[in-house]
Design a protein around this nucleic acid. Structure first.
Length: 308
DNA sequence: AAGACGAAAGTGGTTGA
DNA sequence: TCAACAACTTTCGTCTT
């Protein structure tokens, strides 16, 4: 709903809203239209709230980081005013020098903090050194391009790590990143997409096979089961069962079937937990696997054996 | 009693007009 | 920018072991 209002004095629609004071002023005749505020209080209120929420959301979190810049600007200005009593050229020189110094240390300080955080998250997830370094590189580039402005440092760190993982084919799920960094999954995904797009990093879709080894080891499955799972996975890919589906779900279902065949049965619940998907997803993938591949024969054989 | 299975409704992200 | 859509989740009831 929009609010087209007229000035009661001159019928102009050229009204100016001062949100801080809660006033509506006619730009043409200067009348403060107060009674309108009361009358349409509800409408204006909603408008105001929306705007404020929007503003808070856009500038809320990153304030600690942008604040440095803002603080810097005024500080230099104030000192410059004091020095203005002396030589203007000297003053200008000092101001510029200080400005440059502060800017460079600002980036450095940010980097130091960020890289410490990156290290922490990385070691928490037991990521290889190469991934950590790649992530650090991505983050550094992001800072230099000013991509951190407008989002929190931590989320960009997580995004960089996630991207680095993907590129090195040691994917971690967004859930794992989220747990390690205590940043919302959504937020990590968003910054990840943003940063990779802005930096022109190519992301190949993650391969379910990359998840198998990790899932298998947390489920304590044997190597045979694991390689069987990879086989199943390949067949599934051949049958085009994998496109458009979440890679973790497919990996989980392959492992589940494979474990079944090798008599190392795990419950759907167990597999679902380590893969970070639900049982339902495993069931759906599992069903597709049985239908498209000839696995149902093998599974039936096993059932017969168990029956005897 | 626990696990497997499936239906139905809801959620967040992608896509195409 | 918005509505349609597919994948996935949540929840819950029923069947099997």
């Amino acid at each position: 709903m929009y609010y087209i209002k007229k000035c009661p004095e001159c019928s102009s629609i050229n009204l100016f809203v001062n949100r801080e004071k809660g006033e509506v002023i006619c730009k043409d005749c200067g009348l403060v239209v107060e009674d309108k505020m009361v009358e349409f209080g509800q409408d204006w209120r909603e408008f105001e709230d929306d705007r404020r929420f929007d503003r808070v959301r856009r500038t809320g979190q990153p304030m600690t980081y942008t604040q440095f810049d803002q603080g810097l600007g005024t500080e230099v200005g104030q000192k410059a005013d004091l020095f203005a009593l002396g030589s203007k050229d000297r003053n200008k020189f000092f101001r510029l020098r200080k400005w440059q110094y502060r800017i460079s240390t600002a980036i450095e300080r940010n980097l130091k903090l960020a890289l410490a955080e990156l290290k922490r998250v990385s070691s928490f997830l037991k990521l290889p050194k190469s991934v950590e370094e790649e992530a650090a590189m991505i983050y550094t580039q992001a800072v230099q391009r000013g991509l951190v402005r407008g989002r929190s440092m931590e989320s960009v760190v997580s995004g960089a790590l996630y991207a680095a993982c993907r590129r090195h084919e040691v994917p971690r799920t967004l859930d794992e990143l989220s747990e390690a960094s205590s940043i919302e999954k959504k937020e990590i995904g968003r910054t990840y997409r943003f940063v990779t797009r802005e930096l022109g990093i190519t992301i190949l879709p993650s391969n379910p096979a990359d998840y198998i080894a990790r899932f298998a080891s947390s489920l304590k499955l044997t190597a045979e089961t694991q390689s069987k799972a990879v086989e199943i996975l390949e067949e599934a890919q051949h049958e085009e069962l994998t496109s458009g589906r979440g890679p973790t779900g497919i990996a989980a279902a392959s492992l589940y079937v494979s474990a079944l065949i090798h008599g190392e049965k795990r419950t759907q619940r167990e597999v679902a937990d380590v893969a970070g998907v639900t049982e339902v997803t495993i069931r759906n993938r599992y069903k597709e696997l049985l239908e498209k591949l000839d696995l149902d024969k093998e599974v039936k054989k096993l059932k017969k054996k168990a029956g005897k």
